[in-house]
Structure formats: structure tokens, C-alpha cells
Nucleic acid binder design. Structure first.
Lengths: 142, 142
DNA sequence: CCTTTTACTTATCATTTGATAACTAAATCA
DNA sequence: TGATTTAGTTATCAAATGATAAGTAAAAGG
């Protein structure tokens, strides 16, 4: 196996993933939030409850900037902060009702685009896609 | 095949791809250029020669902003503009010698991280990864 | 030939994002 | 108990990015 060729294949693959992700998600987010805020909400959606520090780590943002953006999301009533009774420095963050509604709409939008994209795939294609995702997830994108 | 489950798998997969891409590429780019400029250079690298309009389309940037960033890259002697003798409105853009050097370094950096990531993969693993990439590229991320 | 369209540029402005210093309050540690 | 570390905040500034208006010059179309 030529690792150099595999590397080049990976480069064009990741480019495609980014492009398709952009196609699937464009216009999915509400205009009332910025791209960075959307990314944060997406992360909270799949990982809640999370602390500010975790968001900071995973989104590669500094604590002050993360704090600022969360404050804005909080002012827009999209998230809730719950302080940890065990450790009163910590704040657990989760989506509010409004935030859930917004993210449900966004995900529904993305999902419908995804379904459109795979509408012509056969049962076998879907199985292949499914196991290819598993393989790459465990062996390359762990 | 449950398409809903496949969609959720795709969501977590793309998240992983983005995270790993970030890990592989972090610190790869020179500090003398901005992230957006790096993306443009990356696109030029794999697609050259390209026109300004193509960059604008593919990078989802407006023409004025694309023009501005290309001007900056040109001032840094990283790219060259060659006007098309057929159509003198068009400009073909490609990397300069300096630009090639910079991108070679960046790619070498990313490649070495990639090699490190797959160092423990067996010959069979690599074959599996290879065909999984092919499947997803043709059936999902086309 | 004159109008329209295409490809790109210049200038300007607002917003977003990133970086840093200085802070509070709570927990941990020695 | 006093020093240090951890979690998060506030304020401020600079830089990067996005959006828009108004322009040039060449090509294409009628």
C-alpha cells in the first residue's frame, strides 16, 4: 500500500467532505446567530450537558472568547447555564427550549438535504456507505 | 437500512473529519498568511491554474473579497497572475516559486502527521481505509 | 455600432473573531 | 490556614472577514 498515494487521496477526500458539509448545511442556520455560535450550539446539541472549558477545548477557542459567545447565546435565550452543586466554579451548559427548537429546525433542514443526496442510492449502496463510515471512523478519524 | 440512523452517523463522522483535519493541519501553515489565505492557496495548489471567479465560487467568497485576498497573496509573492490572451478579462492564477515552497512545506507537515496517525495500521487496515475512501468519495461526497 | 454582460478592481464600512491582561470566586494542596 | 490552581468573567484592542456600492475594461450579442 502506497502511503503517499493514500495521503493524497485523503487530501481530496477531506476537501470533498468539507464541500459537501457546506452544501448540506448552508442556509440551515438562523440568521440571528454567527457561524461560530452555530458551531457551539451544534457541539452542545450532541454533547450536552457540557462545561465552558470543554467547549473551549473542543472548538479551539480561548476561554474569554468562549465565555463571550456563550453570554450572547444566553442573552438570545438559546442556552441555559446550570451551576454544578458539587463544584460551584463549574457551569453545565445545555440548550434551552428555544435552542432545541432552533437546532431541531437546522438538523431537519440538513437531514432533508442529505436524504435528497442519497435518494438514488440502492439498499446495497447504503450498506456500503454505512460500513465505510464505520471503518473510517474507527481506523482513521478516531 | 435506517436512513435516520445513517444521517446521525454521518453527522458524527463529519464532526470527526473536521476535528482530525484540524489536528493534522494545525501549525502547518506559515504565520505570514491568514486561514482564509491558506485555504485559497490550498485550492490553487490542487487546481491550478484557476481564475479568480473559480476561487470565488469554490471558496464561497464574494468577488471583491477574493480579489483583495489574492492581491495580498500576490504582494507576498506567493502567487502569479497570468492574463489569458484569448480573453483579456480573465486572469489565470498559479503558485509562484515561493508559494510552491510554502505549500510543499505545509503539505509535508500534514503528511508526516498523517503517517504518524496511521503508523500502527496493518496492511489490511490500509487496504480497508483505501477502499472505504473510494466508496464514500463516489457514493456520498461526490 | 451600441447595449449588455462578464471578469475583475477599488474603496469603504460593519461585524466577527482572536488575543491578551486583569479580575473574582471556589476548590485543592501543602 | 495560606498559597496555588482551576473555572469562568469582563474589558479592551487588533485583525480578519463579510457585505456593498461604484467603478474599469474587455467580450458578446443584437
Amino acid at each position: 500500500m502506497d502511503k503517499k498515494a493514500l495521503f493524497l487521496k485523503l487530501v481530496s477526500f477531506t476537501t470533498s467532505v468539507h464541500r459537501v458539509t457546506h452544501e448540506l448545511t448552508q442556509n440551515a442556520k438562523s440568521d440571528s446567530i454567527t457561524p461560530v455560535q452555530y458551531n457551539i450550539l451544534e457541539y452542545i446539541t450532541v454533547s450536552q450537558p457540557v462545561t465552558l472549558s470543554e467547549i473551549s477545548d473542543c472548538q479551539h477557542m480561548s476561554m474569554p472568547n468562549t465565555s463571550r459567545e456563550l453570554k450572547k447565546l444566553s442573552e438570545k435565550n438559546l442556552i441555559e447555564k446550570i451551576s454544578d452543586p458539587e463544584d460551584r466554579r463549574k457551569q453545565y451548559i445545555r440548550l434551552s427550549k428555544d435552542g432545541e427548537t432552533m437546532m431541531n429546525e437546522a438538523f431537519a433542514h440538513v437531514e432533508s438535504r442529505f436524504l435528497h443526496r442519497i435518494q438514488n442510492a440502492s439498499k446495497e449502496d447504503l450498506e456500503e456507505i454505512n460500513s465505510a463510515l464505520d471503518i473510517l471512523q474507527t481506523k482513521l478519524f478516531f
